[in-house]
């Protein structure tokens, strides 16, 4: 009983990142507002950062700085990888938001269903013009 309890608490980080991951994807797919979609995408990416950092943690380990006083170290490589992934995530968010701004100027709205309706109206007009 105690064992099952500690092991599930021990995996808390993984449960949290799975929760964030699924809610992030759900937001991307279900929300019509483009800004909310970007927020969902961010949640999804951050969950992966958490997953990686949790993987690198060694129980009882400290930061890998050689002082001679410690013997167990956490794995620093996942941190380095995630540092790169964070940069990629920031760039993605920046481009996404820039696109949303342009969409707002071009369409006057950032709701997906309204944009689709505007596009559809335009296509029908083009078809009639031909």
């Amino acid at each position: 009983m105690v064992n099952a309890f500690t092991s599930s608490i021990g995996h808390f980080n993984y449960w949290a990142s799975v929760l964030l991951m699924t809610s992030g994807i759900y937001i991307v797919l279900s929300r019509g507002n483009l800004i909310k979609k970007i927020i969902g995408l961010n949640l999804f990416q951050v969950s992966v950062f958490m997953l990686f950092i949790s993987m690198g943690k060694v129980t009882g380990g400290t930061a890998p700085i050689l002082t001679g006083r410690h013997e167990i170290f956490s794995n620093p490589l996942p941190h380095v990888l995630i540092l790169t992934a964070i940069v990629v995530g920031v760039a993605t968010t920046a481009i996404g938001l820039a696109l949303v701004v342009r969409i707002k100027y071009a369409y006057g709205t950032i709701e997906e269903d309204e944009i689709l309706a505007l596009d559809l109206a335009r296509e029908q007009m083009d078809a009639r013009a031909q």
């Binding site: 995408l41 999804f44 993605t92 696109l99 342009r102 969409i103 596009d119």
Partner: peptide
């Protein structure tokens, strides 16, 4: 064509996923 913007946005979402 302004539809390029929404096309790029969809591409960004799915590509990032």
């Amino acid at each position: 064509d302004r539809r390029a913007l929404t096309a790029a946005f969809t591409y960004l979402l799915l590509g990032t996923i």
